[in-house]
Design a protein around this nucleic acid. Structure first.
Length: 426
RNA sequence: GGAGAGGUGGCUGAGUGGUCGAAAGCAGCGGUUUGCUAAACCGUCGUACUUCGCAAGAGGUACCGGGGGUUCGAAUCCCCCCCUCUCCGCCA
């Protein structure tokens, strides 16, 4: 959500910047709606002020022992006029905020202008892309062959876009979760959070998934509850409707959760394997920062996510998303893309964003220093998507004999050095 | 799931139909006093929207868990919902 007075006062400049991300703001329509809303508010508030003073007269008259029947009739007439106006006023107000809440965030000045993923800018690349003296396989072939990944039984239990991890496959998932949480809490200063994955609509509104993206969510029937599509939702909403002491910022949280997405509109994309699932696991990094420090915190947060890939010795690159490729709420986003030998391509494994005050305003997360209270800045990033990391390990560490070598840093967690087709189901 | 008790400003806590946006205390902020600290004293101290104004600021409206209703007028009365606590039931 934009700051209304700032938005109104800089409408043309904001519209121009929004156009770079492919969002057409109808400036004239907005101005007209804004004027309509304010006129309606002024009219009904003037009447309400009248009613309040006239109604106060009744109290005085009664104290003086005077009959108030005439005065009551007069006030009732005002009340009737208010009631007649109220519906239209509420309607125009709701329409106005629907429009305003549907406007995406303004890209930060450092974000390159572009319409497509092609216009994203590679910042750097780490690690060495492995070479194989055989044709590297995809994880959806390796996993079932090793008996550590089962799609057919998952389809039986639930349906498409679900998977069962078995044996060392399940242990690898758990090892990654622990490794990521341990690294972020012990070395990067994050506080671990284990939040609910069922969240209410107010929380989803706060982080920007609602009202626009309801179709991407699983809703629990007959309730106001949804399955969280990312830990960003519960963790950011930890501080909804709170005022944080500026001295305590930045606050850094990390959280492991399962994430649930309906993937409506993703038909035909990443249908094979576990790249795109209805349920997946993710370790999320979330920061609350002062406005003056949020962009340096984005650099830090992104480097923390990168450090996981570095330690796992997985080749990856960092990409700065262009204006047209960013998410709705973001002011600036870096994507981390890991190399997948099976596809011979880089694939997104983390997305690190600074939302500046966009979420904080919706969620009423403020920071206070001295007398000044202003919206805080919120940030988050995957640190990392566990399932996709699992994929990257299986594919990058695959051997000619079909086994998979376990990355060194995971061996203490997994108690194994190699995953083979024999003896994995223990 | 059943029965009961509650939800008031950052916190504690008054208020049960008429200047109540809300007493008081604490915390916070500004100041006086003070060698320093502490204490004392004085002042100040919610949010959103909106009108006027270059601004400083001055008005208005709304908000006492949320939504409806009664009334000239609602924190206060009525209805529905949510949440918290206690007891019972059930359960990992």
């Amino acid at each position: 959500m934009h700051d209304l007075s700032y938005f109104r006062g800089n409408l043309d400049a904001i519209a121009a910047r929004l156009a770079t991300r492919g969002y057409e703001l109808d400036v004239e329509a907005f101005r007209a709606l804004d004027a309509e809303r304010r006129a309606a508010l002024t009219e009904s508030e003037t009447l309400k002020a009248q009613r309040n003073t006239e109604s106060g007269e009744i109290a005085k008259l009664r104290k003086a022992g005077t009959d108030t029947a005439d005065q009551q009739a007069k006030v009732r007439a005002i009340g009737d006029r208010i009631a007649a106006l109220e519906e239209a006023t509420k309607a125009v107000d709701a329409r106005f905020y629907e429009v305003l809440a549907g406007v995406p965030n303004v890209p930060h000045e450092s974000v390159p202008v572009g319409g497509l993923a092609d216009d994203n800018v590679e910042v750097h690349q780490h690690g060495t892309i492995p070479t194989f003296d055989f044709a590297p396989q995809n994880h959806w072939d390796i996993g079932p062959a090793l008996g550590i990944l089962d799609f057919e039984r998952a389809a039986k239990i639930t349906g498409a876009r679900f998977a069962v991890y078995m044996g060392l496959g399940a242990k690898l998932e758990r090892a990654l979760i622990n490794f990521m949480l341990d690294t972020h809490t012990r070395e990067h200063g994050y506080t671990e959070v284990f939040p609910p994955v069922v969240v209410n609509s107010a929380s989803l509104y706060g982080t920007g998934q609602l009202p626009k993206f309801a179709a991407d969510l699983f809703k629990l029937e007959g309730t106001d509850y949804y399955l969280a599509p990312t830990a960003e939702v519960p963790v950011t909403n930890l501080h909804r409707d709170e005022t944080l002491e500026a001295d305590l910022l930045p606050i850094s949280y990390c959280a492991f959760t399962s994430c649930f997405r309906s993937e409506a509109g993703a038909y035909g994309r990443d249908v094979r394997g576990i790249i795109r699932q209805h349920q997946f696991q993710k370790v999320e990094l979330v920061k609350f920062a002062r406005p003056d420090q949020s962009h340096e915190q984005l650099e830090l947060l992104t480097s923390h996510a990168e450090s996981i890939l570095d330690r796992l010795k997985l080749p990856f690159r960092r990409v700065l998303l262009c204006t047209g490729d960013m998410g709705f709420s973001s002011a600036k986003t870096y994507d981390l893309e890991v190399w997948l030998p099976g596809q011979s391509a880089f694939k997104e494994i983390s997305s690190c964003s600074n939302f500046e005050s966009f979420q904080a305003r919706r969620a009423a997360i403020r920071c206070k220093s001295g007398k000044k209270t202003e919206p805080a800045h919120t940030l988050n990033g995957s640190g990392l998507a566990v399932g996709r990391t699992w994929v990257a390990i299986i594919e990058n560490y695959q051997q000619k004999d079909g086994s998979v070598v376990v990355p060194e840093v995971l061996r203490p967690y997994l108690q194994a050095e190699v995953i083979t087709a024999r003896g994995e189901l223990r």
